[in-house]
Structure formats: C-alpha cells, structure tokens
Design a binder for these strands. Structure first.
Length: 564
DNA sequence: CGTCTGAGCGCG
DNA sequence: AAAGCGCGCTCAGACG
C-alpha cells in the first residue's frame, strides 16, 4: 500500500495509490492541526509513504511523536534513477538533465521543487506541512509513477532490477534514519567536554581571546622565532618566520614540520593541535551544537556521489578522537559502537569474486591474511598495497607494491583497473546496487580536443584523475550500498524489538562503516545480535551467498573514547 | 561590508 | 616517506 503525501493550501493531501502510482482512492485533504493524528492512524496499515523529501515531513512528525516505518523519497530516488546505468535506456533517464562530475546540485529539479528555507524551531506545528512551494499531489503521483515505470524497465539481468529496487528502499530508509538520529541526538555530556577542554587549554577565555595555554605557546614561539608579532594561525606569516630562522619548509603541514629538529617545532606542533581543538570543537562549538545533553547534527543522505552520507553543521562526521570522551551513555545505558572491519577491501573481494583474496578475507584481519599470502607476513605492506589499489596510488611505497599485488590477485586488481580505464575513457561506473558515477566533467570533455603535446599531457592528467575517481567509486559506492542496507536492517530489528515491548536501543550515530546504538543495559545483548544479523543480511542482499565474510567489531562502552 | 579560495587538518 | 579516494570546518587573505 502506497500513500502519497503532498502539501496543499489548506494543509496536506493524502491519496492511496497502487505500486504503479495509479490512484486507487479519492484524495483526502487534511488540515495541518490534524495531520500528525491522521498519519498516525493510517500508519497502522503499514503503508509506504511517498513524498517529495523526507526532511520536509518527517522531522515534524517525530516532534509530534509519530514514527513511521517506510517511505519512498522521490528526490533521493530520482537522483539515483536519473543516473543509474541500470535505467539509462529508459525515457525517464533520457529526458532528465544529468549532473556532471563538477556539479554541486544533488539533482536538477524537473517536477520537484527546490528546497524550502530552513524550518523555524519554534513553529513546530506550522512546519508539519512544508510552507514553501511544493509539488502538488498530482505532481507527486506523476513522479512516483514515472519512477516505478523506469524501475520496471530496468534490466533484469543478474538481478539488476532487484538490486536497484533495494537501493531505492535503502536510500529512503536512510533518509528516515537520518531524521530520527537528528531528532534523538548523540548523548553528549557537556561537563565532560569542558573538562577535556580545560585540561588541554586552560579555563574558557573571554570571547575573542586565546585560551591561556595557546597564549603561552604563542608567546614561546614568538620568542624562539624572534618574531614578536607572529600570528601562528597565518600560514604565510608563519612560513616567513620559519624561513628567517633557517627552517626551509615548503609548506607548514605537520608531517613536513616534523622533519626539522629546530626547537620551535615542538611548541609549534603543540600550538597547531590545540588551536585546532579550540577552533573546531571548543566552547563555541559546544554552545552552538550541544543542548540538553544531545548533539544533533544534520545528516545529508545522498550528499556524496558515491552514496555516502555527508553532514551539515557541527562537523558530525569528523568528531575528533580527542573529545570522544564527552560522548557518554545515560545512566542505565550503554553505547554499542560497531564497525565493519576493513569494509572496502572486503567489498572489493566480493565484487571481483577473487577467490584467492577471499581466502585471505576468511581471516578476521584481512590485511594479515593478505600479508601471509604474498607480502612475507608484513601486514603494513599488505595494507598499503591494497589501499593503494583502491585509491589508485602510482608513486611511493604503495605504487611500488602494486606489481606484487597484481601477481597475487589478478582478479581483484583487474576489477579496479577496469573501473579506472572506464573512467579515463569517459564512461560511467556503477556500484553493486546500481548507483552510477556522474558523467565526465566539462573539463574532461574539453580536454579531449587537445592538439598540442602540452594539451595532450594535460588531457592525460585529467583522464587519470577521473580514473582514480571511478576506480574508487565502485568500491566506496558498493561499501556505501552495504552500509545503507546494514543500517536499514538494523533499524528494522530495533523497531521489531520495541514493538514487541522489549527494551531496545536507539540508533544515534552513523559514520560510513560504523554505527552507534544507545541502549538500556538489559538490551545490550539483543542489540549486538541485531547488529550482527543486520550485517549478515546486508551481505546477502548485495552479493547473495558468497564465501566472503563481513565481520563486525562491537564494543560496549560507557563513552565513545573507549571504543577501538 | 560580504563572498570566495586555498591551506591545513579532522574523520572514514 | 607522507601518496592515492571521499568529505566539512575554520582561518587568513584576496577581491569586489
């Protein structure tokens, strides 16, 4: 059962349709004030809600205490279907404008409208219905029908249609999970965060001032470098001061500074580290992003072309290890932090069906397995070589190890090499579930008409760059497919437990290949089972019964810094 | 005054 | 030794 939901001048319009997007009942108009109640009643028949964008509707419903099971996010699904190679031959994809590699927009609007301005926090029920211009019910129905039709035309070869359908469901589930996690928030103890800050920086300084510890280091540097007005935050200023003191660096990056033995280096590196903490995750960050013991970041599902999530505000996907101690479970609760070990190389094994590498992947530590098979037991070499293959390294140690890797694993290396050649040649590549890379950038297209030798060199460089992108895309994108399925399967299991009246954890954080569940202590064991079952289910959904393991490492902790 | 870019560094 | 993929954020500095 599909329920289409659209904004309407008086509130919202709801209409039931079949799987093809054909209306099977009259539309029903619902006033704003009644929407949450009506939706909550309709939810009992477990429909799939079809709406333009999850973030226009779902956050306000969560505020009103209404949780939903499933949806079809037309905007996210459109972005996938328009670009997917599995539907490239359909009228739907052909008539759509494509974004290119250098575009910013997630998807060009056709039926669907641009995003509304950010919602006002204090007008909850007004926001239950999106205010700005929104597609009408007819437009929603037409777009849904067009998407379902395109999906039906997708190639059935090798289960492609099924995989793409799965991707759309997982992406839509992801949108709901993102809204739910933002609503729930990451448990964050401000007092612990402040302790960490004070321990490193000293007491909170007045606005516009450096904390005591940074001030002291700054003065020390000014003395050592004989530069009384030095601003260590200015790379240019700093560079000049270093050169005046005979420290001949080309950049002021950490690794390059570490080369030098000069007495200024140690306090400088210390300054940089602390100044980063102060600027990026200091007291102002705490003021801006943490309230009532929760950090509520905004996730951007589909924010990365590969299918990974991005985030907006608060740097949610870059919580530094330094401050992870502030992420702390509530009383009577635990944090369950699970990550998929060495996800990308394992995904490569399954994609390439490399049975030799699959043997190595039977080891809980894949890199150790690889090391044993061809790198004389040297784990770090094995790791560098394999990551180099996935990223397209050509120089340095990683580049030197490539021939050895290729000899041992011709299928796995051949798979990423093919993706690289496709990208260099301007073709698109596709993840396991059917998310395709964007077509080449304008630069790539223009560079093809090069005539002079100089232009040709430039063109080769642009092509190789695109090759590295597509090489990585197939692996990163398929890993993102896996992670989306993992997340959706985990959510399903947690919801089932809760519906059965059992104590159940809540998903509170997701980071590419890692999830965090905040769980009542008595539910920890069940949560761990759910996490592991979901991982196994995700593998089977993507690859079927292949002899490749996707082990999950699970830590049950009070605070995030104790995981890993 | 605001907006943009590059450097640098945080995360996977 | 510091590369090869994907991001977001802050600051300095340049520009309009």
């Amino acid at each position: 059962m599909y329920l289409l939901l659209a904004a309407h001048p008086d509130g919202a319009a709801i209409q039931e349709s079949d799987a093809a997007g054909v209306a099977v009942a009259e539309p029903r108009l619902v006033r704003k004030a009644e929407l949450a109640g009506v939706v909550s009643v309709l939810e009992k028949s477990r429909p799939r809600w079809v709406w333009n964008r999850t973030q226009d509707w779902y956050p306000a419903m969560l505020q009103a205490g209404v949780e939903l099971e499933r949806c079809h996010d037309l905007t996210l699904c459109r972005a996938i279907l328009v670009h997917s190679e599995f539907t490239a031959h359909t009228g739907y994809a052909r008539s759509a404008e494509k974004l290119t590699q250098d575009d910013e927009m997630p998807v060009p609007p056709r039926v669907l409208q641009p995003p509304p301005p950010p919602a006002e926090q204090d007008a909850l029920f007004d926001d239950l219905v999106p205010r700005s211009t929104q597609p009408s019910l007819n437009e929603i129905r037409a777009e849904f029908a067009a998407q379902q039709h395109a999906l039906g035309q997708a190639s059935r070869e090798e289960g492609r249609q099924h995989r793409l359908k799965l991707l759309l469901a997982a992406e839509s589930a992801g949108a709901m999970i993102a809204a739910e996690m933002q609503f729930t928030g990451v448990p964050w103890q401000e007092a612990l965060h402040e302790e960490i800050l004070e321990g490193h920086l000293g007491p909170r300084p007045p606005a516009g001032h450096r904390p005591a510890r940074l001030e002291a280091l700054c003065n020390e540097l000014r003395g050592i470098l004989q530069s009384p007005k030095l601003n260590p935050d200015s790379p240019q200023d700093l560079m000049r001061a270093l050169h005046r003191n005979g420290i001949e660096v080309k950049t002021t990056r950490q690794w390059e500074l570490k080369e030098s033995k000069h007495p200024a280096i140690e306090p400088l590196l210390e300054y940089k580290k602390l100044s980063r903490l102060f600027a990026a995750n200091g007291w102002s960050w705490l003021d801006a992003w943490v309230s009532e013991g929760r950090f509520r970041p905004e996730y951007v599902v589909g924010g990365v072309v590969s299918g990974r999530w991005a985030s907006r505000g608060g740097g949610a996907l870059q919580i530094p290890r330094q401050i992870r101690g502030a992420v702390h479970a509530d009383p009577g609760h635990k944090l369950i932090v699970a990550d998929a070990s060495q996800l990308e190389p394992r995904v490569l094994v399954a994609l390439a069906q490399d049975s030799k590498m699959a043997e190595a992947a039977r080891d809980k530590d894949l890199y150790a397995g690889i090391a044993a098979q061809g790198f004389g037991g040297d784990r770090s070499k094995a790791k560098i070589a394999l990551l180099g293959a996935i990223y397209g390294a050509t120089t340095g140690e990683s580049g030197r190890l490539m021939p050895q890797l290729t000899r041992t694993y011709p299928r796995a290396v051949g798979f990423v090499e093919q993706a690289a050649r496709d990208g260099e040649g301007g073709r698109t590549v596709t993840s396991r579930l059917g998310r395709s890379s964007p077509p080449p950038s304008e630069r790539w297209i223009r560079s093809q008409q090069s005539t002079t030798a100089e232009e040709q060199r430039r063109a080769d460089s642009i092509a190789r760059s695109r090759g590295r992108f597509t090489r990585n895309f197939v692996v990163q994108g398929s890993a993102a497919d896996w992670a989306s399925c993992w997340l959706a399967e985990l959510r399903r299991r947690l919801r089932t437990a809760r519906a059965d009246g059992l104590p159940a954890g809540e998903l509170v954080f997701f980071l590419h290949d890692e999830v965090m569940v905040h769980a009542p202590t008595e539910s920890v064991e069940a949560c761990i089972n759910a996490i592991e079952e979901a991982a196994a289910a995700a593998k089977e959904l993507l690859f079927g019964r292949v002899p490749v393991e996707f082990p999950v490492s699970v830590a049950v902790v009070d605070s995030y810094d104790k995981a890993k």
